[in-house]
Amino acid sequence: MTDWLGPDEWRAVALSLKVSFWATCLSLPFGLWVAHLLARRDFAGKQVINGLVHLPLILPPVVTGYLLLTSFGTQGPVGRLLEPFGIVFAFRWTGAALAAAVMAFPLMVRAMRLSIEAVDPKLEQAAATLGASRAWVFVTVTLPLILPGILAGAILAFAKAMGEFGATITFVSNIPGQTQTVPSAIYAFLQVPGGESSAWRLVIVSVIIAMSALLISEWLARRANRRVAA
């Protein structure tokens, strides 16, 4: 594998995996919280939250990237706030992870929300009558029943993060070894003469990763339905 891919190509694949991994892991708890909020609670402004979560799905990725740049960049309000703590996003791989996380968030929340909604609230009521507090109901009943949904959401988010291009390149540019993920690398290879073979190899890697993610997520979703319907 390492021989088949050149060093630049390999670096892009490794960076993409790192970026997607952290983007998925760090947005997971937040995504679960938002999904639970949207599925189980009624509150004023629920539609606003719902809209904000889904915004990256419908906005042009370049717009999302530009908004990230103006708010999380070194001159942006949030970026300036975080800089003293050593958290810098601009033109770093962390920025690529943030862009990927934001772009993948709607998919993650959607998958989790659907699986939470599939859990019969009557089961949660039954658990309460048996002495379980709200937190225990979530841990012992809701969470085990939606686990496949959570995994499916995470895998979808991971795959989306692997393929993110527009927001990433707008926010953190295309620096080899720093912010050049697989899609950015493919784009860069296609800009130079003789880069097609490198691009093709990365295309194949992308297809394999995307296909496996989709298959695993479908399989988990089917398992989830079986369990909840039982």
């Binding site: 009557k122 009521q125 658990a127 048996l130 507090s133 709200r134 225990w136 085990p144």
Partner: peptide, 19 residues
């Protein structure tokens, strides 16, 4: 609150935990 009432509630639909 219900979880502190020490109940044994038998529902019409058994409501067993499937997992």
């Amino acid at each position: 609150p219900p979880h502190k009432r020490r109940l044994g509630y038998i529902f019409q639909d058994a409501r067993l935990f499937p997992h």
